[in-house]
C-alpha cells in the first residue's frame, strides 16, 4: 500500500491531459449505454415497425403492465407508507430487525422472490385451499402480488427516509396546539414528507413496470410487457421482441422525464441526487 502511494506520488501529472482522459472515459461509458438503444434499428425494417408496434398482443401487454403497476403502486402506498411512518417514529425492541426485513425483497433475486411467493399462493398452499375461488397464480392478481412484493422496499425506504427528515418538533408543536395524532399525521407529517413519498411512489411504479423475475414464477400469463419481450425473444429471436422493446424504451423515457420533472419541482435537486439519496439499485432479474 505504501509503495502504491509512493508510485502515485512519483508520476508527473503535468504530462497528462486531464480533460482528454476524462472525456475519453466518459464517452466510452455513454456509448455503452446508448449503442444498444440504437442498435435495434439493425434488427427491424422501418417499414414493418409500425405494423409490429400495433400488434394487439403488444398493445395488450403494454396496457396490462401500466394497469397492474398502477394498482400495485397504490396498494404498496396504502400499506407501505404507514409501515414507513411506524418504523420512523416508533422505536421498539426489534424495530431494527423489521427495517432489515423490509429490504429483503430488494436484495433477493426476483426469481427467488417469485419462488417464495409461489410457495405461499399456489393452489395447494394453505392460502390457495382457503380461498379456492381466487386465482392467485397465472392471473392479473398474481402479477400484482409479484409486483407489490418486489417493488415494496422502494416505497417503504423512500417514505421512511422522508419521515425521518421531518423535524419531530413540528409534530410536537402541533400536539401542543391541541391536535390529535390523526390530525398531526395528515396536516404535518404527511405534507412535510410529501416530496420523499412522491419520489417513493414514482420509483415503485417504475420498478413494478419493469418487473420480470417474480412474475415469471408466479404469473407467466397473462403477459406483462417484460414477459412478452422474454417470450418473443425466446420463440422468435430478437427481431420478434423489438416492438415490445421499443415500447419499453418509449415508456422509460416518459417515466424518467416525468420523474425528473417531479424531482426538480419538489426537491430542486437533480434526478441522480434523489435516486442516490433513496438508495435505488438497478437489476431486475
Amino acid at each position: 500500500m505504501i509503495s502504491d502511494v509512493s508510485f502515485m506520488n512519483n508520476i508527473d501529472y503535468s504530462m497528462i491531459n486531464f480533460k482528454l482522459i476524462i472525456w475519453i472515459l466518459s464517452g466510452l461509458a455513454l456509448l455503452y449505454i446508448i449503442y444498444p438503444l440504437f442498435s435495434i434499428s439493425t434488427f427491424v425494417e422501418p417499414s414493418t415497425l409500425l405494423t409490429s408496434l400495433t400488434r394487439p398482443e403488444v398493445i395488450d401487454t403494454f396496457v396490462l403492465s401500466l394497469i397492474t403497476a398502477s394498482i400495485s403502486t397504490m396498494l404498496i402506498g396504502l400499506f407501505g407508507v404507514p409501515l414507513a411512518y411506524c418504523l420512523s417514529r416508533y422505536k421498539f425492541q426489534g424495530s431494527f430487525l423489521i427495517q432489515i426485513v423490509v429490504i429483503i425483497p430488494l436484495v433477493l433475486p426476483p426469481l427467488a422472490s417469485g419462488a417464495l411467493l409461489l410457495g405461499v399462493f399456489n393452489p395447494n398452499s394453505e392460502l390457495g385451499k382457503t380461498f379456492p375461488e381466487i386465482e392467485f397464480t397465472q392471473s392479473v392478481i398474481g402479477i400484482i402480488i409479484a409486483q407489490t412484493y418486489v417493488a415494496s422496499p422502494f416505497m417503504i425506504l423512500a417514505s421512511m427516509v422522508a419521515f425521518d427528515m421531518v423535524d419531530k418538533s413540528y409534530e410536537n408543536i402541533a400536539r401542543v396546539l391541541g391536535k390529535k395524532n390523526w390530525h398531526v399525521f395528515i396536516r404535518i407529517s404527511l405534507p412535510l414528507a410529501k416530496k420523499g413519498i412522491l419520489i417513493g411512489f414514482m420509483m415503485t411504479w417504475i420498478r413494478a413496470i419493469g418487473e420480470l423475475g417474480a412474475t415469471l414464477m408466479l404469473a407467466y400469463n397473462p403477459h406483462t410487457i417484460s414477459i412478452q419481450i422474454y417470450e418473443d425473444n425466446t420463440i422468435g429471436g430478437l427481431s420478434q421482441a423489438i416492438p415490445s422493446i421499443i415500447l419499453s424504451i418509449f415508456l422509460s423515457v416518459i417515466l424518467i422525464l416525468a420523474y425528473s420533472l417531479i424531482v426538480k419541482k419538489l426537491e430542486g435537486s437533480s434526478i441522480h441526487q434523489s435516486m442516490f439519496s433513496f438508495g435505488v439499485s438497478g437489476g431486475n432479474k
Partner: peptide, 28 residues
C-alpha cells in the same frame, strides 16, 4: 399533550414551513 391546554414556545420558532403565516396562526 393535546388536551393539556398549555402553550409552549421553543428556542426555535418551529413554524410549519408548508403553511402561510395566517395558516400557522390559526392552526391550533
Amino acid at each position: 399533550i393535546e388536551s393539556r391546554k398549555i402553550g409552549y414556545s421553543f428556542q426555535n420558532p418551529t413554524l410549519f414551513p408548508h403553511m402561510s403565516v395566517f395558516e400557522n396562526i390559526v392552526f391550533g
